[in-house]
Amino acid sequence: MSLIVEKKNHILYVTINRPEAMNSITPELKDELHATFDEFEADDTLRVAILTGAGEKAFCAGADLKKLVPKMSSGERPIAVSDQRWFSNVYKPIITAVNGWCLAGGVEMMNGTDIRIASEHARFGLSEAKWALYPAGGSVVRLVRHLPWARAMEIILTGNQFTAEEAYHMGLINKVVPKEKLIETAEEYAEKIANNGPLAVRAIKEMAVRSLDLPMSQAFYWDSYMSTKIFKTEDAKEGPKAFAEKRKPNFIGK
């Protein structure tokens, strides 16, 4: 089983389960990941996901050089936009727990998630250019938006590896923790998000993603539309009421 999927208390746990191959991505695993997160997006009982890799050695070392890369190089498996835009059609939060090496396609997958926690021994790098390959998972597009231009281009063009602390200081990840605290910390974030209004959380994530493609004037228009839509929900009435009554809100997703 190359992918382990579990559900618990509104949280989806997705574990890449190929530790013997540094959790590298095969064609079948890539398709399975896309299908799993499509199902996550459609399941109203789930509010947030945690993505990690099996074992302590690697989160994901990128594409399987024996299986996926040859199919891409030969044209047998065309590079689809869905492959480049990891999780960009998912409007629920995704948290990545990076447990070790996060290289090439692993970084690209992580770039499509929202909150990133790394263990102290985690290492990062986009090495494609070193081997005359292209980082086809969206990093060229995303990193120049997420990081300062010079920092993004250094990562993409040199292929140099960097530590979890360096990733934290450049703003690529949110927190660095001891390896034994990795999943626990990811769960703390997930539980906080899962306890928030699910419709509001989803609308915030969707607007943030969509705004990247819009001029600011149009983005504010859609921002107004989203906020109006959320303020009309039952949850938007329950939240302030619970605050006034000094109790925990009971959000129903309506």
Score class of each variant (00 low, 15 high):
Asn196Glu: 14
Ala219Met: 03
Val209Glu: 15
Ala236Lys: 06
Asp235Gly: 04
Lys237Thr: 09
Asn195Glu: 14
Ala219Leu: 12
Glu166Asp: 04
Gln218Glu: 15
Thr185Cys: 00
Tyr225His: 02
Ala200Trp: 05
Ala194Phe: 08
Lys181Asp: 14
Ala242Trp: 09
Ala208Ser: 01
Met216Pro: 10
Arg202Tyr: 11
Lys229Asp: 09
Ile183Lys: 04
Lys192Phe: 03
Thr228Ala: 12
Pro198Cys: 10
Tyr221Ala: 11
Arg210Thr: 09
Lys237Gln: 09
Asn160Gly: 13
Glu188Ala: 15
Tyr168Gly: 01
Ala219Trp: 09
Glu206Trp: 14
Val201Pro: 00
Met216Ile: 15
Glu166Lys: 13
Ala236Pro: 01
Pro240Tyr: 01
Asp235Ser: 00
Gln218His: 13
Thr228Phe: 12
Gln161Lys: 05
Pro215Ser: 12
Lys205Ile: 07
Ala203Ser: 13
Leu214Tyr: 15
Lys237Ile: 02
Asp235Glu: 12
Leu199Cys: 06
Thr185Ser: 02
Glu188Gly: 13
Leu172Cys: 14
Ala208Ile: 11
Leu199Ser: 12
Gly159Asn: 03
Ala203Ile: 00
Ala200Leu: 10
Thr185Ala: 07
Met170Lys: 08
Arg210Ser: 08
Met207His: 09
Tyr168Pro: 01
Ile193Val: 12
Ala164Cys: 05
Ile183Tyr: 09
Lys241Ser: 00
Tyr168Cys: 00
Ala190Ile: 07
Ser227Pro: 04
Ile204Lys: 06
Thr185Pro: 14
Ala186Trp: 08
Met216Arg: 14
Ala219Gly: 09
Ala219Cys: 09
Lys232Tyr: 07
Asn160Arg: 15
Thr233Arg: 10
Glu187Gly: 05
Gly197Ala: 15
Gln218Ala: 14
Ser224Ala: 06
Glu206Leu: 01
Ala186Cys: 11
Glu187Trp: 13
Asn196Gly: 06
Leu212Cys: 02
Tyr221Asn: 09
Ala194Lys: 07
Glu180Ile: 08
Glu191Ile: 14
Lys175Ser: 02
Ala219Ile: 03
Glu184Leu: 12
Ile204Trp: 05
Lys229Thr: 05
Leu214Pro: 12
Lys179Phe: 00
Gly159Pro: 12
Met216Val: 15
Lys229Ser: 03
Arg202Ser: 10
Asn160Ser: 11
Leu182Pro: 05
Phe220Met: 13
Asp213Met: 04
Asp235His: 05
Ala236Trp: 06
Ser217Tyr: 03
Gly239Phe: 14
Asn174Ala: 07
Asn196His: 13
Glu165Gln: 04
Leu182His: 10
Leu182Ser: 08
Ala236Leu: 05
Ala200Arg: 09
Asp235Phe: 02
